[in-house]
Amino acid sequence: MTYAYYPGCSLKGTAIDYHTSALALAERLGIELKEMEDWVCCGASPIHQRNPALASGVANLLLSLSEGISKDVAVLCAACYHNMKKAEVEMREDGKKRNEVEELSGIPFNPEVRTRHFLDILDKDYGLNALKEKVVKPLSELRVACYYGCLLSRPPEIAFDDPEQPMIMERILEAAGAETVSWSHRLECCGASHAVPLTDAVLRLVNDVLASARDAGADIIACACPLCQANLDMRQEGIRAKLGVAHNLPAVYFTQLLGIACGATGKQVMIEKGMVSAVPLLRAKNLL
């Protein structure tokens, strides 16, 4: 199982823990994530906010870099996934659009290329039964709130699970022995890239998400997007300072939890990187 891996910028910076834990997990599962050479930034939200056509052009460049590795491009970041999948689906379904994007990027589109989020790969390609077999340290008694945010399932054309009620992350973490909670804000927006320019709005949104997870009895939040994780984790201090609410709820990547379940050490999944440390919780549950 070899995939053309596109990490994206955050995974080499603020989300280095996502990158490292995903590779550690993949190795244990026997999945090869082969990094595409000389990739560039997908432009995240700012790129289509400036010029939607530009976003598609860059996405087409990125899709073309998978050549020679695999037709399936593995992506971990929700914003990268969103930009690439959206362009890919549009080009496959709309010939006029495809011509425009090919013209702009100067690169032919290969309709066989598929952008795949790592969650989807684990669920559909690897399979939950195979995953269960690799679990050596079940995440038992860990109550996890799975957080999808917005970009993984919107617009519905790019969703790999029910766009309004996805259960894919729950299925996967339950296969690793975790208990998942049912909560209301699984798909609410965290404010994403507004974290920098509109920090107060993001504090409000993140506070709502954290409160919902806490009310549902979650010990920890699992994320599948570096922007979500950064906001949920790093903004808790701001929420305490500005809104006077102390959540102290760790938000980690699903790959970190799965990595631990499959026998990786805390260090191998960089569990210590979180601002709100998950270490005491995981120790208490005998997972570290």
């Binding site: 939200s45 906010q49 970009l151 617009p155 507004h194």
Partner: peptide, 11 residues
């Protein structure tokens, strides 16, 4: 300018 591009509206 305040739109966060979450696409809830579109969906």
């Amino acid at each position: 300018w305040l739109c966060a591009s979450c696409e809830t509206c579109t969906a």
